[in-house]
Design a protein around this nucleic acid. Structure first.
Length: 299
DNA sequence: AATGCAAACAACCGCCTATTG
DNA sequence: ACAATAGGCGGTTGTTTGCAT
């Protein structure tokens, strides 16, 4: 299906190529990526141009390390959405899906895997003991990560951050898992896989929108007011609650009864504009407080 | 100083869905 | 209804960087 142009350049982009691509997008705007190589005079495929722009050249891209709030949000959203990097990144202004994915794979996943592995072994051996947090081998971080030149108070010194935040959270996850094991309450995890595409056909309707919010498969829910984040918050809140209660997110991602596939009448979260992470965090206050109040000795 | 290794990041690949004719 | 094409996404691999030995 995909026609691969012969002889196109691959690999790292040069400054000259970046300049040409930026000039082209400035002139013609984003989109029509199939025309970009020709317009820009680049010997690159359309996908490569698009990716380079989206992940690196776009002017609103935020560089530097992730803030505490951002990491918090990533962990929570990943819990809710799984590897829906574009959706997660959509809630993090200035961050790209690739950034989030890389961050997850290099910083968080490994730590969670450690806990998962230990838990699995504990279950097998029927040997649930005190919770242990494995601290990774100390690593010196580059200046890029420790100084965060463009960041101010929000910037996170990652090694310290690991100690003070992520570890606490992983401890809680471990604790919850331990309790589940004690109660013999471990159930198979159902993977909910919303169809990414259907997100773009929106259908969430806020009070300020033209249509009523109707929780049916055919509901068209539109949020036209960017000044009113309540419905946005409500949507995430419901998703959170459903997850906390161990329910599937079926109410939010209705299944098509006939085909068994996800309905196309889903919710377009992309059409929402996140005013700031604080709005979303208002939901997470409870857990945040739990985390923040945990003493490291609690481990 | 040289080398090996691991972490971090950039980029590619293959697949899926939407759109268009 | 179907095929071709474009846009987009997640998984994976390749490259660079910096630390430890």
């Amino acid at each position: 299906m995909e026609n691969k142009p012969l002889g196109v350049r691959k690999g790292t982009w040069t400054k000259e190529e970046d300049f040409l691509l930026k000039q082209c997008v400035d002139k013609y705007g984003e989109g029509k990526w199939h025309l970009v190589p020709l317009r820009a005079g680049l010997n690159r495929c359309r996908k490569s141009c698009r990716l380079r722009w989206l992940n690196y050249l776009r002017p609103d891209i935020k560089r530097g390390c992730f803030t505490k709030d951002e990491v918090d949000l990533i962990i929570r959203l990943h819990k809710l959405l799984g590897n829906k990097w574009s959706l997660i990144a959509g809630r993090l202004p200035g961050r790209t899906a690739n950034d989030v994915k890389n961050f997850w794979n290099t910083h968080i996943e490994k730590k969670l895997a450690v806990i998962g592995e230990r838990t699995r072994k504990d279950v097998q051996n029927n040997n649930i003991t005190e919770r242990k947090i494995i601290k990774p081998r100390p690593r010196t971080f580059s200046k890029l990560h420790t100084t965060c030149p463009n960041e101010t108070k929000e910037a996170t010194n990652f090694p310290n951050f690991w100690n003070t935040l992520i570890e606490k959270k992983l401890a809680i996850i471990g604790e919850r898992t331990r309790k589940d094991v004690q109660k013999i309450n471990i159930t198979e995890t159902k993977i909910i896989k919303p169809r990414p595409r259907t997100f773009s056909k929106l259908h969430i309707t806020c009070p300020n929108g033209t249509k009523e919010a109707t929780p049916s498969n055919n509901a068209t829910l539109t949020c036209t007011s960017k000044e009113e984040p309540n419905e946005y918050i409500k949507w995430w809140s419901e998703l959170l609650e459903a997850t906390e209660n161990g329910e599937s997110s079926g109410n939010l991602f209705p299944e098509d009864n006939q085909t068994g596939e996800s309905s196309s009448a889903l919710h377009d979260v992309d059409n929402y504009t996140t005013p700031s992470a604080h709005h979303l965090f208002s939901f997470f206050d409870h857990d945040v407080n739990v985390w923040e109040n945990l003493s490291l000795d609690d481990k």
